[in-house]
Design a protein around this nucleic acid. Structure first.
Length: 830
RNA sequence: GCGAGGGUGGCGGAACUGGUAGACGCACCAGACUUAGGAUCUGGCACUUAACCGUGUGGGGGUUCGAUUCCCCCCUCUCGCACCA
């Protein structure tokens, strides 16, 4: 290298990154062990689906996690930072069919490639713990857990109307239907009646809701979304008897205080009692046609749009058990069969939907809850009065406050045995049956005589049939007699294996726990190890999993606890939901054609630059706008640091001990060094705002450069310079680990940077001895003053009063009031 | 409609419990070194102005000596839920 090249040179990232990755690997630096020193810290990023290549979202997610992992190690924690693969799923089947090969081949090839890409980023994972969820060694334990859940009554089968995705040829869970379309392929989802397996997540609804209060380390947004998803409502269940028929219609209401205002009853088009109500009546044909039309329309417009209220009178009446009133029964298009009881007592005066319906079909409106300082008249009301108030026209309850009346009315119904207090949830049980090949088989056997039987533990795992017979390999299991033909584990007679596979969200619901003991051969988890590492201290991933994955994982954690595997209630103590990577105002996606392949970036700039850019461009929770110039900038910064170090290498190697007495410039750099330690540490500790941490480091570098320009590195203050450089590299190392390690070696350090503790902040050194005090006159900034830090108020004020600008802007007036804010400003008011 | 989070230079973004608005970076401009430079170095850079002054954190009002920060009203963007009885 010539001198000229040194001055404008660039560091050889390809060489040094490979060098350090090898070194870390041979040393096993990131292997985690329960016997490790220090408090445990488990940091985890949401593991990827092995789609083929990593994308910018991965880079961002894993860079954030890696900085945290490396930082915590430097802070003396015993850090667990694992990585694995969420490897079951549909794309593998599609690819296999296309290539006439097996999904496993495609999946494991992708894993191998992507593992290489992650290694290339220098991420500090304990690779010894890696697994893929399609490894039989993983899903065998999931099958075992399924059987144990079955034994506990948490698993059942039922025929329901499910969400069917025609293009994926499979059922979807409610959580996987987004705006009426499939979460994976965006195609419309249709209802279909099918038999399937369900997990009783609703058994845990109350706990899942209540424990949200513990999650102070989660973004409020995610907590709110989960709370809304669980959707708890409390109220009254009660029965209305149908006139002339021996049947009752059950309703649920959150407003028992309005029961005296019921003027009709509305039921869903698919309500099971509808048939009984209309068969043999004059209304039958008309109502049936209406109901069918509504159901068809409902399917078509599953998308969000305001639909006009429609209904039809069934010809039947029912009796309000509270006042004996006879009210007509309608079929209405806005009543949901899936929620409550599928029938609603209609109170037009106090419910907007009922109000609109009543106006349209000229049904009476009877106000029964009058808000304070208001009068309600059915003739003048333009909308429903949904607020609280005082009861009128409500028999013995008239005059009561609506809140108190709710309780009283529930008690009244309970005493009269026609109603009961009730809690209902929006959350549905989790349908986990999928009709696809590439998933974990549900370990059940159907026997003609013995019914449903779980597979005996000894026979696990139930593996997927693997033959090399070309395109046949991907056939759904119900088309594979070689798979489903079996014998009953109880009676030994011929029986049929369950052919559904499990929803892939099953695998991701407990992988974080398996990472604590990935090789455990006698059960899903080594309880001691899981007990040591869990819960996850910091979890990082995209907000798109706010409900699906995060809710399922919370549920599984509680189930694992109840099965005796875990001693915790919640899996993730702190959650960071990182923003999306955006380009040209839209999320990077293949369909929009705005993807940037991180692979090429790494080739062009090196892993450290790519990491630095993704950390610097935005705080982690916000969206990150892609900028090729921003990457340039990150690269430029690292090269500047490199050139400075190369240029002053020999001085840095032979630096003096920091002397007691420092020149003004020396003191200034020393101060900046310690202020930077404080700023960077606080940025990371408070909210992982690496962008401000990096800007502080850039400032330190700028000061350092300026000091060198002023020949500060001449003895004896070379020690100050050296310390500034050392601190810069140490603080940079979690973010740009290869670069920092190499520069560390370049300045003559022997010991590995990764093993050194985080630098200590010296408050004394960081203290300013001169302060800039702002002078305001009448609240406007008029001047600035340099003063010693320890100046007392009176001296300060007299200095301020002598200031030229103070005098000028006082315009000869005498001050009425003087406000002194310590170390900040003086405001003179006249 | 309901819920949550945003709106600060040309751009990404800073600003601790009310106290210097615009740190840091990008872009841009000027200069230096150069045969050349999209390399590198130095300096400038909210708007307006020759300068002082003045104006300025979505808009309007309020509290305060002082408001990006607190309060009220409104506009707007993003995300989530969407007839949940």
């Amino acid at each position: 290298m010539t001198r000229d090249n040194d001055a404008t040179g660039r560091y050889n990232f390809a060489e040094i990154e490979e060098k350090w990755q090898k070194s870390w690997e041979t040393e096993g630096l990131f292997r985690a062990d329960e016997a490790g020193i220090g408090e445990k810290y488990y940091v985890l990023e949401m593991f990827p689906y092995p789609s083929g290549r990593i994308h910018m979202g991965h880079v961002r997610n894993y860079s954030i996690g890696d900085v945290i992992a490396r930082y915590k190690r430097m802070r003396g924690y015993n850090v667990l930072h694992p990585m694995g693969w969420d490897a079951f799923g549909l794309p593998a089947e599609n690819a296999a069919q296309k290539n006439n090969s097996h999904p496993a081949t495609w999946t494991y090839a992708n894993i191998a490639y992507m593992r290489g890409q992650l290694r290339r980023l220098g991420l500090s994972y304990d690779w010894d713990r890696e697994f893929a969820t399609c490894d039989p060694d993983y899903f065998r334990w999931e099958q075992l857990l399924f059987i144990e859940m079955f034994a506990r009554g948490l698993v059942y089968q039922k025929v329901t109307t499910v969400n069917w995705c025609e293009s994926c040829q499979t059922v979807l869970a409610n959580e996987q239907v987004i705006d009426g379309t499939c979460w994976r392929c965006d195609q419309p989802v249709h209802p279909k009646k099918m038999n399937g397996w369900f997990l009783k997540i609703t058994d845990y609804a109350e706990e899942l809701l209540a424990d949200l209060d513990q999650l102070s380390g989660w973004p409020e947004k995610v907590v709110t979304m989960q709370r809304n998803w669980i959707g708890k409502s409390t109220g009254l269940n009660c029965d209305f008897t149908v006139e002339e028929l021996d049947c009752r219609i059950a309703i649920f209401t959150t407003r028992p205080d309005t029961v005296f205002g019921v003027t009709f009853m509305s039921i869903a088009a698919e309500h099971p009692l509808l048939d009984t109500l209309i068969s043999g009546t004059a209304h039958e044909a008309e109502v049936r046609a209406f109901a069918e039309r509504i159901l068809v329309e409902k399917q078509r417009q599953s998308l969000a749009e305001e639909v006009e209220k429609q209904g039809i009178f069934t010809g039947r009446y029912c009796i309000n058990p509270f006042n004996g009133q006879r009210v007509p029964i309608y079929v209405a298009n806005f009543v949901l069969m899936e929620y409550g009881t599928g029938a609603v007592m209609a109170v037009p005066a106090h419910d907007q939907r009922d109000f609109e319906f009543a106006k349209k079909y000229q049904l009476p409106v009877i106000p029964v809850v009058v808000p304070e300082h208001q009068e309600l008249s059915p003739d003048t009301m333009v909308e429903a009065a949904t607020g609280p108030g005082m009861l009128i026209n409500s028999g013995q309850f008239s005059g009561m406050d609506s809140l108190a009346a709710q309780q009283a009315i529930i008690s009244h119904a309970e005493a009269g045995l026609f109603g009961k207090a009730h809690v209902t949830y929006r959350l549905r049980d989790w349908g986990i049956s999928r009709q696809r090949y590439w998933g974990a088989p549900i370990p059940m056997v159907h026997c003609q005589t013995c019914g449903v039987q779980p597979v005996p533990h000894g026979e696990l795992p139930i593996k997927l049939p693997e033959d090399a017979a070309g395109s046949k390999t991907c056939l759904p299991l119900h088309q594979r007699p070689d798979f489903y033909e079996t014998t009953c584990p109880r009676c030994g007679e011929a029986a049929r294996r369950e052919t559904d596979t499990m929803d892939t969200f099953m695998e991701s619901s407990w992988y974080f726990a398996r990472f604590t003991s990935p090789g455990h051969q006698t059960g899903p988890l080594d309880k001691a190890k899981a007990g040591y590492w869990l819960a996850v201290d910091q979890y990082i991933g995209g907000v798109e999993h706010a409900i699906l994955h995060l809710l399922y994982s919370r549920f599984f954690t509680k189930v694992l606890r109840d099965l005796g595997y875990l001693g915790i209630d919640e899996p993730f103590i702190n959650l960071l939901t990182q923003g999306m990577v955006i380009k040209d105002g839209a999320k990077m996606s293949k369909s929009k054609g705005n993807v940037v392949d991180p692979h090429e970036l790494i080739e062009a700039y090196g892993a450290d630059t790519v990491r630095l850019f993704s950390l610097f461009a935005a705080p982690p929770e916000r969206d990150l706008e892609w900028s090729s110039q921003g990457v340039e900038g990150a690269s430029r910064f690292l090269n500047r640091v490199y050139r400075m170090i190369v240029q002053h290498r020999s001085m840095l190697e032979n630096a003096e001990v920091i002397p007691d007495q420092l020149s003004e410039a020396g003191r200034s750099l020393h101060r900046k060094t310690h202020q930077t330690i404080r700023r960077v540490t606080e940025s990371i500790e408070q909210n992982f705002h690496f962008n401000t941490a990096i800007s502080a480091l850039m400032e330190l570098f700028n000061s350092l450069n300026a000091s060198l320009g002023e020949d500060l590195h001449q003895r004896p203050e070379s020690g100050v310079v050296r310390q500034a450089v050392a601190v810069l590299l140490q603080l940079l190392s979690p973010m740009v680990p290869h670069f920092a390690a190499e520069m560390w070696q370049l300045v003559g350090e022997e010991n590995g940077l990764e093993k050194l503790p985080w630098p200590l902040f010296d408050a004394e050194a960081a203290k300013e001895d001169q302060l800039t005090i702002v002078i305001q006159v009448n609240g406007k900034v008029r001047s600035r003053l340099q003063v010693p830090a320890d100046i007392d108020d009176n001296d300060l004020i007299s200095l301020v009063m002598k200031d030229q600008n103070t005098v000028k802007f006082l315009e000869g007036n005498s001050p009425k009031k003087t406000i002194v804010v310590k170390k900040k400003l003086v405001n003179i008011v006249f």
